[in-house]
Amino acid sequence: MTTVTVDKAAPTRKVKYGSMSRDRAWALRWSYFFLVIFAIFSLTPPIYMLITSLKSSAEISAATNPWWVFHPTLENYVGLLTSNQFLRFFWNSAIVSIFVVTITMLISVPAAFALARMRFWGSATLATGVFLTYLIPETLLFIPLFKMFAVIGDWTGIQLINRWYVLLILYPTLTVPFCTWIMIGYFASIPKELDEAAVIDGASWLQTLTRIFIPVAFPGIIAATIFAFTVSWAQFLYPLVFTTSTDQLVMPVGIITSLIKGDVFNWGQIMTGALLGAAPPLIIYAFLMDYYIAGLTAGATKG
């Protein structure tokens, strides 16, 4: 009798267990469904760019299947990489980005440390203020900024407009607030006892920052660095407004101004240039992805 009861009980339990795992299976199926849609959505443009970059101008304008390359050619790549102008844009972008990242980190890491750890009058308000500045879009700022630089030029004779280094002043207005905010969150997650221990061990504020906080918060610093680099590499509006001569342009603006002549779009080279321009951030992400995720999440949970 007992065995019969057990046999009868077994299927009911099995069904219940099965239904739970079926829920899970469906959840997985749905998540894969949306992930695939998302992947298609975000990968289509770069794939289209890659396809187009391998075509000659004749093939691009010919009425063939735009999703296939019938006569692959590297002429666009050769054309751009041997063009001094394009290499100039690339060089300008690189210089500006490297300087901006350096400036940003030199400002935002100590700023975040001060705002997170040194309790001084108004420090909390200041921290919120830093974040609020990030919320003001550059579309709102570029006209007053332009006017400011023009006035400065009139008064002092220091000409900043149409010089690549004006970007070194402009970009940090975008990168510094956000990076400071990330670093505040990250530093705040470091236990208070750690800097107290350092203080008792005889460390000054600067030594506490350089020898304890920066090493411990290294993933956060990587995340902030990547962010600053991405922002300055991809920034479009400010260089479009503030730089005009071809030798002063950075890549995003350089591509559209030099490769679009009136209503003639040199699509092959535009796509190639955009693809080459996307390469450095891609490479950096690929190498530092783990740090980036660790940095963002660590800052997020405690921020």
Partner: peptide, 26 residues
């Protein structure tokens, strides 16, 4: 003075020896 904290407050990126010698190295 030297202080021992409830949550140890060891420097996570340093070895035991480096933790112990931090004050002396400073």
């Amino acid at each position: 003075i030297a202080m021992v904290f409830q949550n140890y407050a060891l420097y996570p990126h340093m070895t035991v020896a480096e933790n112990m010698s931090f004050g002396l190295r400073l």
